[in-house]
Simulated assay, not measured.
Amino acid sequence: MRRRVAVAALALGIAVGGAVDRAAAVEHERADALAELRGLAVSIDAAQQRTDRLQGLIEVAQRDADDRDAVLAVRPAFVAEIAAFGTALASADGKVDTASARASAVSAQNSVLAERRDPAVVVAATATVHALTAKVTGDVAAWQAAQQAGPAGPRWSSSGPDGYARVRAALDRVGGAGVGLYESSSCAGGNAPACANSNGYIKYRADIAGWSADRLSWAMAHELAHIYQFRVWGALTASAAYGSMFGGDPEFLANCMAVVRGFPGSVGCSADQQAWASGVWVGVVR
């Protein structure tokens, strides 16, 4: 009897031990499965992050491509305006001063060359060049009208060809290449050494051909300033700032405009007056 009980107890112990072993094995398998599941979740999350990142890069690249396409779409119009501006410059050669217009066109061209994203920048530059072309074309037309409206007879009499050449060189030097120039004693009845005509040409008294280079350059810069004043005369006379800053005096304004060009006379101008006067050289009246 005792032997049977011992055998039964041994069998029970073996059974219990086997159950414990199986439970431990199951727990180990469960832990392995959980670990594998966690690893799989991490892999899936990493893969999703890579997918999201790639999708973001694709979207950014697509937006960049769309921006470039939009800029490229408006560039031909700018190129056409630059070509028209070149034609206008060719027609202005030797007739009118185009230095300011050239500088503005170069600035516009540089902005277009640097732009990759915003088509509005190219559109604005196109409008700028179009306006510059119109201005140069208008200046040339005014010069041609001035040539036709110049006084009859020779360009000089008592000053002679050498005196005329010296005055002509001074006018060209201050930016008046192409502006008509004639010797005359009619400026203020001969009391003024030079004067500008609203038709776009300048007259000078013979004796100024013997002036010093600096004084002659100032005189021509002053008279050339009047030519530019005539081009904006309506806006100029309507400007409150012109009245308050210069007393509505075109002579004082012409002196300040000459200072801006680097040819000061005997009348000084403040920095604010010079800044305002500089606008008239480019057709701007504030």
Rank of each mutant, 00 (worst) to 15 (best):
S185W: 00
A83F: 00
W156G: 02
R166N: 06
A19L: 15
D139F: 04
A196D: 04
G180C: 12
V26Y: 05
A165W: 14
E27A: 15
A206V: 01
A35Y: 10
E183Y: 10
V136D: 01
A41I: 08
L171V: 06
D162E: 05
S217Q: 12
V267N: 13
N197A: 07
A141D: 12
C195W: 09
T98G: 11
D64F: 13
A35F: 01
S270R: 04
Q62W: 02
A46H: 06
T133S: 10
A258M: 02
A219K: 10
A11S: 12
S239Y: 11
G176C: 07
G56N: 10
A238I: 08
D45W: 06
N197L: 08
I208Y: 00
L37C: 01
D118S: 06
A238R: 13
E223A: 12
S270C: 10
G150H: 00
I208A: 09
Q148E: 03
I14C: 09
A196R: 00
A241G: 02
Q273I: 10
S104L: 14
G175M: 02
A131S: 13
A120E: 15
R2V: 12
G94F: 01
W211I: 03
I14Y: 10
R168S: 14
N255K: 07
I14M: 14
S185G: 15
A235G: 07
G180Q: 04
C195P: 01
G210E: 05
T128A: 14
E29Q: 14
S158M: 03
T137Q: 13
R155I: 12
T128Q: 10
E223C: 10
S212C: 02
M257G: 03
N110E: 15
C187K: 01
W211N: 05
H28S: 13
G190K: 08
D66N: 05
A149H: 11
Q144C: 00
A9V: 05
V60I: 12
A194D: 06
A73I: 00
F85G: 07
T51R: 14
I58R: 14
S244K: 13
H222M: 07
G262E: 04
R53C: 03
L224S: 09
V42E: 12
A84Q: 09
G56D: 05
I82M: 13
G265K: 13
A125M: 03
Q274I: 03
S184A: 08
Q49W: 09
G279F: 13
Q62L: 14
A254Q: 04
G153S: 04
L181R: 07
I208R: 01
A134P: 06
S43C: 04
G279L: 11
V123N: 04
W156N: 05
Q148S: 12
A170M: 01
R75L: 10
W281V: 06
H222A: 06
R53P: 04
Q109G: 12
L132T: 02
G279N: 05
M257W: 06
I14T: 12
V20I: 12
S185E: 07
L72M: 10
V174L: 04
A108K: 01
F85Q: 00
T87I: 13
A84G: 05
